[in-house]
Amino acid sequence: MSRTQISDFLVDEVTEHVYIRETYGKTLVELGREYPNIVVLDADLTVSTKTNLFGKEFPNRFFTMGVSEQDMMATAAGFALSGKIPFASTFAIFATGRAWEHVRQSIVFPKLNVKIVATHAGVTVGEDGATHQALEDIALMRVLPNMTVIVPADAVETEKVIRTIVNHNGPTYVRLARVKFPTIFKKSYEFEIGKARVLREGKHVTIFAVGIMVCEALEASKILEREGISACVVNVSTVKPIDVETIVKAASSTGAVVTAEDHNIVGGLGGAIAEVLGENYPTPMKRIGMKDRFGTSGDGLQLLEYFGLKARNIVQAVHELLEFNSQKKSVVL
């Protein structure tokens, strides 16, 4: 494969690993200086979500809501109704699970300008175990009309996302995680709400991925390349509104699709892609992710191995899919 088929946005080699929640916290401080209307609310996890950085610099615009996620969400709605730009942060499981109905009724239905930025999503939460590993948050948020759902793939994208959503008027959910993410993008990376990015062109299979799994998908594409399989890799960082055009184009150019996410394959990215392709361009597909099960305690990165969320699992899914496609062809012939 020639270099021209690889996105200019990608770094040549991963050299950095960064806590994207820290990127969130730092970006929020910078935005706080530019936008006096930003207020930040947090439900007793300020050190973990890194909103404490904003709190230090802007104590009068920082509201510790205590362990009261429902109250936090509806209070954020009240701020938005008064012209503020509220950011509400806590762990993903509480932001989207515990407070779901407050998010639905008080924020998303009336289309209020509240930014829910949740950290500690996915199985990479690690040691805290299944109770704290949100594997449903993408599903819970994308099922809401009016909602925008974004899953950044690294620190560079996280910063761009946070800067972008400040100027996007409407309810928004951003999914961040606990562990360090490999930095895969150059500073020149461009993020646009609703735009999926083709990171690598390919002929035989298309891998759609979000979050930490984008790096695994790129890794898989390198392994596949050595086997003579050319894989297209797409970062679907906006899960809602989903980029139907790019997804259909990428799927139709290869005829085989694998999705990859640190989330339940039910209702998450895999579900979203299946919905798009089912209606527009039915394509054989495999979903890599949490296979309709809960997580468990363990080191966050070790859990990615344990639950089969690594590049080699994507490669295996590609093999199965291509095998299936070739058998299907021979049956038709």
């Binding site: 207020v39 429902q70 969400m73 209070t75 009240g78 701020f79 012209g83």
Partner: peptide
């Protein structure tokens, strides 16, 4: 809660 948000903003 919404009223609290309005009161804090005011």
């Amino acid at each position: 809660s919404a009223a609290n948000g309005m009161a804090l903003a005011a």
